Simulated assay, not measured.
Amino acid sequence: MKTYFKTLLFGMALIGFTACNANNKKTNTDLAQAEITVQKPSKQYIKVALLLDTSNSMDGLIDQAKAQLWDIVNELSYAKCGNNKPNLQIALYEYGNDRLNGDEGYIRQVLSFSEDLDEISKELFSLTTNGGEEYCGQVIQTSLNQLNWGKNPDDLKLIFIAGNEPFTQGKINYKDASTNAKEKDVTINTIFCGDYRQGINISWKDGASLTNGDYMAINQNNATVHIASPYDDDILILNQKLNKTYVIYGQAGSQKMALQAEQDTNASLYSKANAVSRTVSKSSHLYKNKSWDLVDAEAEEDFKYNDLKASQLPEVLKGKSEAEIKAYVAKKRIERKRIQKQIQDLNNKRKLYVSNHKKDTKNGLENAMTKAIKEQAKRKKYSWD
């Protein structure tokens, strides 16, 4: 019996070590230790820190970030790490803006790593530009110091820095920042807003190559191209139905639901197609609202109905028994899954339509980021549906 148990335990350990990263080799000592301790595999994350120059000339860049956020999220939603779909965390920094603190390098952390896509959208829409000094090395180092990058070797950890001034400015050498990034397994990607050759001459390409990242150049003033499809109206109708499946709870519930509606509006300000892209994001596993929605919260391992106070419940559930609340949430969950599937099915048709009509229209920031992410994800053995 002891031999059988030991063999079983060892087999389970080997399964646990089957990682997305094929280069993550285990020594004999590691495997021996695995006989003693069996750990659950960690969740995989795609961690993206977006460092945006918000000096005077960067209005077009900020506009592209606002308009193309949901297309980028949608592309990342198709990523797979083995049989798992990795989670997404996005952090946001602005730099090079005179309104920021000069003693801190004209740098501001707008948002730490977050899975709250509505909050990320809100903060993007809050950005404004103003003249300033752009210190690329310092903003990279600041993001390395402040953010929790974690130590999971299967996480994809990426910095995207965009701007148009020399990469060498500031008191922190970008080469030193790159060395520190490599120690944290973070890849730096640079997006120069201007002529490709000019970006090379002022070290933007070197800033990427030191961590085997990608260097890209975009015209930040190009308008985002959104292609309408025959499926857009139906998807937007489903978005309205999807919003009705959210069951608010807690002090922030009403406020967060209002934020959700606000970001729906912000997306639609650019075009109907952009609103559709946001709706598609809301139908993916990356759109999570466990802090204020009972349907998402209930799916968490540590959630307990006993912890809910009557004051935290929406009016429709106040005075209801636990069994009645569970039944109500289960009904909303079924509705949501059905609606999300309908959105995904329509989006598959929409993607085919858009690909047939896209021709040579490529959106700068979106194309640069998704191309780099996919290439670098291959090193971690990620795949795309």
Rank of each mutant, 00 (worst) to 15 (best):
V186Y: 01
K378G: 03
I107P: 02
Q263N: 13
A275L: 05
D98I: 13
N306K: 09
L259N: 10
I325K: 10
L111I: 04
V329P: 04
N266T: 01
L294A: 10
L156Y: 02
N28E: 09
A327I: 10
I161P: 04
A258H: 03
L346Q: 07
I227N: 03
G199A: 10
L346W: 05
K359P: 00
T224F: 08
A310L: 12
I325M: 14
D360V: 13
Q220E: 13
S311T: 11
I218Q: 02
G364T: 01
L286D: 07
K380H: 06
I202R: 03
K326D: 02
Y78F: 10
I237Y: 10
K288L: 14
K371W: 09
C81E: 01
A372L: 02
I90K: 00
I218E: 04
S112R: 09
T54W: 06
N219P: 01
K337N: 11
L286N: 08
L352S: 15
D302W: 14
I325D: 02
T142D: 13
P166S: 04
K362Q: 12
D293P: 03
R338E: 12
A327H: 08
L158C: 06
S281C: 13
K66N: 12
G131Y: 05
D360Y: 10
S209P: 02
Q64G: 10
Q344V: 06
L158D: 03
Y305K: 02
G170S: 04
K122H: 13
S114R: 00
E115L: 08
N289R: 14
V48A: 08
H357W: 06
A65P: 00
L317W: 04
K6T: 09
T18I: 14
L76D: 06
P166I: 00
N219T: 11
E315R: 09
Y174R: 03
N97S: 12
A372T: 09
K205L: 11
F167Y: 11
D185C: 07
L346V: 09
T18N: 12
A217R: 06
A323I: 06
Y382G: 01
A252K: 14
T27W: 09
K182W: 01
G319S: 03
I15F: 14
I235T: 09
E123L: 07
E262L: 12
D154R: 03
T29A: 15
N145P: 00
I172L: 09
A32H: 08
K2G: 02
L156S: 01
D214P: 00
K351V: 00
N164Y: 06
A261G: 05
N84G: 06
D195A: 11
N201T: 10
Q141G: 02
D233P: 01
L352K: 15
H226D: 12
D293G: 00
L346G: 03
S281H: 09
S281I: 11
K85Y: 03
V316I: 13
S112W: 02
L352Q: 15
T27S: 15
S355A: 15
E183V: 07
E115I: 09
D307N: 15
L144C: 10
K282F: 05
A261N: 14
N23A: 10
Y246T: 10
A208Y: 06
G199P: 05
R338F: 12
E165A: 12
M257K: 11
Q64R: 03
W70G: 05
A22T: 09
Y231M: 11
Q263R: 11
I248S: 14
V329I: 15
S203Q: 14
K47I: 01
A67C: 04
N84L: 07
V295T: 13
G207W: 04
